[in-house]
Design a protein around this nucleic acid. Structure first.
Lengths: 228, 228
DNA sequence: ATTACTAGTCTTCGAGTAC
DNA sequence: TGTACTCGAAGACTAGTAA
């Protein structure tokens, strides 16, 4: 009975989307329409009872305004329903515009310099050189990015594994690295040391040169990463 | 086990649409992506097991190509999946373009003249005059239209009821009428005699004048109806 | 760390039917 | 014709767990 609140990818917490689309297709976004539950049921390949129930559920969730009369239902999609459909629409537009996860923009955050400490270990350096193809500059560029943009950006790439190792003092965990380019030019890599628990919206970038200097990046500057 | 085939409004026979949208948002339309079932599950507010099942269902329906490895899933949306998303996209575009069900185009079909017989009854004529506001020309214009366009066109209008009656010889059923205009000018009405079983894609139009003559319509000519 | 099977629970469906 | 209730059946979900 409790109204479940689920966060969904497209702002679409709606399970009766199909019915909503059917109604929208009948023009219920713009104005009131008449539908019988049987008509909707036939169009969607479900029973009249289920169509009736789905309509009432949509109405209960304020997705549509519903007046059930003995001669049919008068339906209009509410503001909330429209905005859900619009969100879906713009989401699809993004997908088919082709600019999906090819770039990632972030804002520079001057970190505490922990990155330096890890990256400078010679056991890591040797692997970076061999696997990524460059000896990283001593220091990392930290960027704050959007979590879902980051996910989309990374999903399309193969990660490279940098193995961990142990010294007499302590052990160093493995690092997951993704080859990228910065500002369309500079070869670089996003690294995820598997031990250190980063916030989901913060990433570390290493490159053969001092990125901050080359691109004159200050705290809060915008930087664009692209797939390599 | 049998693959159910349901005809749906948006060409979307897919119940795992949410997962499909999630994958598309990660760029799986353009290229292969890596996702773990747990990651997808967290993003969608479902369990890892369900995410796994949904992925396999999508793969079984050839909506996606799926390679499950011990280090995650490699997913790419198939041609079939893409086209379903595209259809959804264009459907939404139609909805928000605002040209939803405001007009209806049809092709003239020279009928057998049955319409004349009904329409010309003086008991009907009297009601047409009173309720629709005009005395119809002796003869109907038959149009072949698209079933779903017709449904969308009619859903946005209030029907007017023309009552049936009985003569000594036989009885005449009631007629459902929708006030419209033809070619943006001529006042008219689409009528549905409730007795006669029309095919879903054929409608009868009555007007105070001879529409066929006025607009020079022949068999197969295109005619546009608008809401009144 | 993965994927995915099994089993029990919970949700959703639709036939019958009331209004 | 309509909408919508009940209730038994079918399907979907998750926890536990194997691999």
């Amino acid at each position: 009975m409790a109204a479940e609140i689920k966060k969904r990818c497209f702002g679409l917490a709606e399970k009766n989307l199909e019915m909503l689309l059917f109604l929208a297709g009948l023009g219920a976004v713009q104005h009131e329409i008449r539908v019988s539950t049987a008509e909707a049921a036939a169009a969607m390949g479900i029973s009249q009872q289920t169509a009736s129930r789905k309509l009432r559920q949509l109405a209960a969730d304020s997705i549509i305004e519903l007046k059930a009369t003995p001669s049919g239902c008068i339906v209009r999609i509410s503001g909330r329903g429209s905005s859900q459909l619009r969100e879906l629409h713009s989401g699809l537009q993004k997908i088919f515009s082709g600019k999906q996860g090819k770039k990632l923009s972030g804002r520079v955050k001057i970190g505490l310099g922990e990155g330096k400490y890890y990256v400078a270990r010679k056991q890591y350096l040797e692997q970076f050189k061999r696997i990524l193809g460059f000896k990283p500059f001593f220091g990392t560029l930290n960027l704050v990015v959007d979590a879902s943009e980051l996910r989309a950006f990374l999903a399309g790439m193969q990660p490279t594994q940098i193995k961990g190792f142990e010294t007499t003092e302590r052990s160093f965990g493995q690092i997951k690295a993704f080859k990228i380019s910065v500002e369309g030019k500079e070869k670089a890599a996003v690294i995820f040391p598997e031990r250190s628990v980063h916030p989901e919206t913060e990433i570390e970038v290493i490159a053969p040169i001092n990125l901050r200097k080359k691109f004159r990046l200050k705290e809060g500057s915008k930087a664009i990463l692209e797939r390599a």
